[in-house]
Write a protein that binds this DNA or RNA. Structure first.
Lengths: 163, 163
DNA sequence: GATTTATAATTGCAAATGCATATTATTCTG
DNA sequence: CAGAATAATATGCATTTGCAATTATAAATC
């Protein structure tokens, strides 16, 4: 089992069927499995901190790029805008973020992470880092770098926003 | 912007912070973005066929490996067992799958895809294949193959089941 | 072989989610 | 510059989700 076939090069037909490609050769399937496991593993840890996936992602993104408009944050955090709106409500109530009106465009609300918010993410980060490191266990640095580079190309291919 | 740094090789500290790695170098982030887009794009198409993500994944998996026990199907389809249980209820009502008791172990229910179920998945497949092909647009075959190979290693590293 | 322990699947329930819509502010067009 | 189109965010609502508990069967242990 686990027969390894290269991706199709025959373009004479519109496309192969999934059964022909095989689940273990179908990148979206593998990525969904991988991310499903990753997110499920994290969820347990987050629950202990009173966080959900959207709330955690919000903090993760803001820990890197602070003071984003809500609409951009939704893209970065991969969360529906309406879901994010409610997640921010809770995060603000708990003092992990602040909503600040944009000076130039009064439609826009920018979200700022607080020290408490950073502290909460810092508590979660070791777990994220551990799972991350476990994922790449035994995979050489050059292979990791190539993998990430391919991911970036793919994201560029299908993303709907310039960031 | 978009400064490209190789993954860390300095192991003197327990781990880098996310801000140091950068979102665009952090594989789980990129994969979540990618799969978020992929799944959201598919969802629209599925809605037209009365399918949800769990229902679609069920059909996708069964189109490749039929007659799986529900518990295994949940792993392959990356769906919580309770969610799957209800998805199967709907799929069975719509005649897309059948639940069959296992002959050897009467705790087990095996799920079988029907012709109608295959037809439904066949209707969805062109869209999946199109997005799949769009994702890999401009990426050479060797790079795709290497990418999938790395994914397989990663899944092997973090999966909880032998399949 | 009776009792404990483990596994498969379902279900109750509170919470989270996504879609469509509402609301307010901005930009575009004639 | 008035009116229409667009954009950012919030909210109502039906559905979905995940967790915990339940039921039913099988395997392990004594």
């Amino acid at each position: 089992m686990n027969d390894i076939k290269p991706p199709a090069t025959d373009r004479s037909e519109p496309f192969q069927r999934l059964g022909e490609i095989g689940l273990s050769n179908f990148a979206p399937y593998l990525m969904n499995r991988l991310m499903g496991r990753y997110n499920a593993d994290l969820r347990q840890e987050m629950a202990g901190l009173g966080l959900t996936t959207p709330k955690m992602r919000t903090l993760a993104v803001l820990s890197v790029i602070d003071a984003l408009p809500i609409s951009e944050l939704a893209v970065y955090a991969v969360v529906e805008q309406s879901t994010l709106s409610r997640a921010l409500e809770q995060l603000a109530t708990d003092g992990l973020v602040r909503r600040e009106p944009d000076a130039n465009d009064s439609r826009v609300t920018r979200v700022v992470i607080t020290d408490t918010g950073r502290a909460a993410f810092d508590q979660l980060w070791p777990t994220m880092a551990r799972i991350y490191s476990q994922m790449f266990n035994g995979i050489p640095d050059e292979e990791r770098a190539a993998f990430v580079e391919t991911l970036r190309k793919m994201l560029h291919n299908i993303r709907k926003h310039d960031f």
